[in-house]
Design a binder for these strands. Structure first.
Length: 978
RNA sequence: GGGGACGUCGCUCAAUGGCAGAGCGUGCGCUUGAUAAGCGCAAGACGUUGGUUCGACUCCAACCGUCCCUACCA
């Protein structure tokens, strides 16, 4: 042997990087293994146990609906929650995560019905109890599915003991909350128009409705105005229109209305006009009609086409047709909508009067600008009727036939859709039909999703929570006012526009409709008078029901006789009757989840608001809103101190994800292709306060970011193979300046990242770490330190100084990353020499231990700026084929006066800093250099690159003259080996 | 239609009432002792139009685009 040219000989004398931490993540294999390890070692429980006795951070999980699989939005929400929970615990605050599921409600009911249909079972033959059991089983099935999907993401939570709204204890407490609402006098019953299917004889929810084209009669009807008689409401005017407007000269006036549902005319109680629209009085000849000014031509086209003529004009070569009134003098006068308010008219065929009311919903798109209003048959009609104190009169029975209150009596028992021709005939006979009988329109109309028949609007009695009554029947602020006050004063909204958002909703929302004519849910335990239907609200009854429900579930309400809950029934307040039956309505599912703070958090942590709710921005209308109402109604305070909101997941172009667009990215696919870690990184990298984009391209670039972090960690670990912190660590005061600088940068990172965690700004965590890894470490510190770590004396101070800082870097980075890159941080922690804890999570976050000394920071900032100038010149030399590797270069510096002393002081460090073989400091640029064109860096610093002197040292690859003159290795290597 | 939000290089994010930064990607090189790695150089952006101001990416208004909630109507 003895061949000095044999490179392997010297390689063995180097301390090259060495680690078993793999370069490739292989996350698909790593993640399941890590999940199993966490479960086996009870890492989550240990994390909580480690914080026992520390201050609590109360986080409350909002329950997702137990139907379907998780989607990207669910993943986003839950990963954010996991960041919060892990970061809180690693900051030394005890923070539990009790996951929950929302289990009742229509979507599950419908899914179960669908399954029954597939099994060819008729739901109507199924006992209520059996149906409920099937719903319960269905919800349980999807809880299990979603739970395993969420676990797979690496979330730490009490997965074995989640809360579910179908738990008996939950149902029972929910009924107690309802009792508390009732006790404050906020629960009441009134009629409200709801979708109703006359075939299935049931109320329908929005989700039960599908729109389809439907042909309806199109009729214009004249309502004759007259002086109001009977008791005068505050909006009613005692005189008739004809008397109020002098230009009418006393002629009778008809309100012209348009409708496509003649069968609702028997329930007509009002005509709505828009306060800000202009109305016109038009003389048809036999009668004067009122209509919106802008709709008059269209009205005339329908009812008196002879009073229009079509003129054809030629304009710029094109023919334009326009309809014009034949006799404009037939317009008698105008009035603003608001001036029509309160005038009375005679119902066309029922013995009563109606009134003109104002409604913002009136538009000029169709009809006459005067809207036939039947509060019992339409949502907007109902709303406007409510404002005027009109009854939601509904003469239609559940089977769609008119009842015995309908006028005229000839309609009694007739099905509503069959009644249309009869009513048109009636109008014709009365001489109030303005257009021809038999006209019709085809329009989009709601149909029952189940039986495909057209549905109707029908007012039925419903239960409400009042937003505007004073609590406890006293004077004082309403639920709405109290809730608004809490929003303003007691809650921090992040981002702050959340406050404005929920305020707007609270200010405008109507009373909360609590009841649903459905099966799968928590019953509203009230008694109904058998003779008059009056409801009996009894908190005492509710408490009794709650006791039974706690034992045997919500079905107890149906199984046990009413007497079990109401041993001494009082007489009916309305009719004095003594026979009561059980109400069959169930609670809106939003009431279920609204009670979660009371069911889940209070019993565990005592009363008082929790620290954080964290959900998507749609929950301003949903859970944030409903929880607030229940908590304010029952406890007079908000259930939370802080509400954090995130946006929605959209595709790479910012469009919403939908099956029809085919741009949906499923979490499952991300996991199988990249791993859950990348999904977590995606959440961390994005500013979630806006909508956040998800696409394959985004994931690909995140994979690059992941690689960068992983390799940085790997490099640090690989240079610690022979390092024992207890034995080898160098005290701060003895650290090399460059190492001191790196440590200072690390301290700055720790401070920045911890601040970001505290402010829930996870994207700043991610970007700060990636920047640190890429710029400070990989491009500068690692690159420059390589020579020292590989070739210098193994146990010498300079090398141990570098390792001391590398150790801190690895240890701190892993702990800072653990909440985000949980899988990788935990994996890498096992490769850290003498790691202080078994799991990285148990190590907690690093504390900020010091600051970057100002002089050190400034010094290296200056040195690195010079380095950057040098690198540009090295690149030029490379292009000119003067050098290849930078160690083949020597650098001649011609500093400006200001830099001369500074560079002289650091001359010895410069070759290492620039990764070149030699650096010389010279006074005057060479002739060649002086010819360098203007605009380069030579105005402040002259840089010339020449081939290095000497020959390449076979051990450290630096060029040295002694090697050229026959030495086996360079002097530095000689020293390292000695 | 009403309420809320957002719009910085191809992508993800910074910063500041006064020269707009980083990472990824792209192009061109170097390296082969972090090597299915690493290093360097380069090109590239403030949605549009007005206004306030000595000066605006930053403040205001309108418009355009996108998202969430709501109303989808006789």
């Amino acid at each position: 042997m003895g061949d000095a040219e044999e490179p392997r000989d010297w390689k063995h004398t180097l301390n090259l990087p060495r680690t078993d931490f793999p370069m490739k993540g292989n996350l698909q294999a790593l993640e399941p293994r890590m999940l199993a390890r966490w479960q086996e070692e009870g890492t989550w429980a240990a994390l909580l146990a480690g914080n026992a006795g520390r201050p609590r951070f109360l986080f409350h999980d909002g329950p997702p609906y137990a139907n379907g699989h998780i989607h990207a939005g669910t993943a986003l929400n839950n990963v954010l929650k996991d960041f919060v929970v892990k970061a809180q615990n690693m900051s030394g605050r005890l923070c539990d995560f009790i996951p929950g599921w929302d289990c009742h409600g229509l979507p599950i009911e419908r899914a179960v019905e669908k399954r029954l249909k597939e099994e060819k079972v008729d739901r109507r033959t199924l006992a209520r109890e059996d149906f409920l059991l099937r719903c319960r089983a269905y919800a349980q099935e999807f809880i299990d599915i979603q739970r395993s999907e969420l676990r797979r993401l690496g979330l730490f939570a009490d997965w074995d003991t989640p809360y579910t709204t179908l738990a008996f204890g939950y149902e029972a407490q929910e009924i107690r909350e309802l009792a508390a609402v009732a006790r404050h006098g906020l629960l009441f019953r009134k009629k409200k128009a709801v979708y109703w299917c006359v075939t299935d004889q049931t109320a329908l929810a929005e989700a039960d409705i599908e729109y389809a084209d439907h042909e309806s009669p199109s009729i214009y009807v004249a309502f004759r105005t007259e002086a109001a008689h009977g008791p005068l409401g505050k909006h009613e005017r005692p005189e008739a229109l004809a008397e109020a407007f002098s230009f009418l000269n006393g002629r009778a006036v008809d309100l012209a209305i348009w409708t496509t549902t003649p069968w609702t005319l028997p329930a007509n109680l009002a005509v709505a006009v828009h306060p800000d629209l202009d109305y016109v009085f038009y003389d048809l000849g036999p009668r004067v009609v009122v209509a919106a000014k802008d709709l008059l031509p269209r009205l005339l086209a329908e009812i008196a086409p002879e009073q229009l003529e079509v003129r054809t004009l030629k304009a710029q070569g094109a023919q334009v047709s326009a309809a014009a009134m034949v006799e404009p003098s037939r317009i008698l006068g105008y009035a603003a909508g608001r001036d029509l308010e309160g005038f009375a008219y005679r119902h066309p065929f029922a013995p009563r009067q109606g009134f003109v009311v104002l409604g913002e919903h009136v538009t000029l798109e169709q009809g006459t600008g005067l809207v036939h209003t039947a509060p019992g048959h339409g949502a907007e009609d109902y709303a406007v009727g409510e404002a005027y104190g009109l009854e939601a009169y509904n003469p239609v029975l559940a089977d769609g036939r008119f009842d015995d209150t309908v006028q005229p009596p000839s309609l009694q028992g007739v099905r509503v859709f069959d009644a249309n021709p009869a009513i048109v005939q009636l109008l014709l006979e009365k001489g109030v039909l303005l257009n021809r009988a038999g006209e019709s329109v085809v329009h989009s109309y709601p149909h029952c999703d189940r039986c495909k028949n057209p549905v109707i609007f029908r007012a039925t009695p419903q239960w409400f929570v009042s937003l505007d009554r004073a609590l406890d029947g006293e004077q004082g602020p309403s639920l709405r006012a109290r809730a608004l006050q809490q929003v303003d004063e007691a809650v921090e909204w992040i981002p702050d526009w959340g406050k404005q958002r929920i305020r707007g909703m609270l200010e405008n929302r109507p009373d909360w409709t609590l009841s649903r004519q459905r099966t799968w849910g928590v019953p509203i335990p009230v008694a109904l008078c058998a003779s008059c239907g009056e409801g009996l609200v009894s908190p005492a009854l509710m408490e009794k029901v709650a006791e039974a429900v706690a034992q045997e579930g919500a079905g107890a309400w149906y199984r046990l006789p009413l007497a079990a809950f109401l041993p001494e029934p009082p007489p009916c307040a309305s009719c004095g009757g003594r026979r009561w039956s059980k109400g069959t309505d169930i609670l809106d599912v939003w009431f279920d989840s609204a009670c979660s703070f009371a069911v889940v958090m209070e019993p565990r942590y005592g009363p008082g608001p929790v620290d954080l709710y964290l959900e998507g921005s749609d929950q301003h209308r949903g859970w944030f809103h409903s929880s607030l109402l229940v908590s304010v109604a029952t406890r007079d305070r908000a259930p939370y101190r802080r509400v954090l909101t995130h946006g929605f997941v959209v595709d790479g172009e910012g469009r919403k994800m939908s099956k029809s667009l085919g741009n949906v990215v499923a979490p499952e696919k991300i996991i199988s292709q990249y791993g859950a870690e990348l999904l977590r990184l995606w959440v961390a990298s994005s500013d979630y306060r806006d909508d956040i984009r998800l696409s394959d391209g985004i994931l690909k670039s995140l994979a690059e970011g992941y690689r960068k972090i992983r390799n940085t960690l790997r490099y640090a670990l690989s240079n610690l193979a022979d390092f024992d912190p207890a034995r080898d660590a160098v005290p701060d005061a003895q650290l090399l300046p460059l190492d001191g600088w790196a440590k200072g940068r690390l301290e700055e990172l720790v401070a920045r990242v911890r601040r970001a965690y505290d402010a829930y700004e996870f994207h700043l965590v991610y970007h700060a770490v990636v920047d640190f890894c890429g710029n400070d470490l990989s491009a500068l510190y690692f690159d420059i330190s390589k020579d020292r770590l590989y070739t210098w004396k193994t146990a010498g101070l300079p090398r141990r100084s570098g390792q001391t800082v590398l150790y801190r870097v690895a240890s701190d980075l892993l702990r800072l990353l653990a909440p985000v890159m949980s899988f990788t941080a935990e994996e890498a922690w096992a490769f850290l020499p003498a790691a202080p804890t078994r799991s990285v999570f148990l190590a907690g976050f690093p504390d900020v231990q010091g600051r970057m000394p100002a002089e050190l920071g400034e010094r290296f900032e200056r040195l690195f700026a010079i380095r950057s100038v040098v690198q540009k010149q090295l690149e030029v030399a490379r292009r000119d084929k003067v050098i290849g590797a930078s160690l083949e270069a020597q650098v001649l510096l011609y500093p400006a006066e200001a830099d001369r002393e500074f560079l002289g002081r650091h001359l010895a460090e410069l070759p290492g800093l620039f990764i070149v073989s030699q650096v010389q400091l010279l006074d005057a640029p060479s002739e060649r250099l002086q010819q360098v064109p203007a605009g380069s860096h030579f105005e402040t610093l002259g840089v010339e690159v020449r081939p290095a002197d000497g020959a390449k040292c076979p051990r450290c690859w630096t060029y040295a003259v002694e090697v050229a003159s026959g030495a086996a290795v360079c002097a530095k290597c000689q020293a390292a080996l000695g």
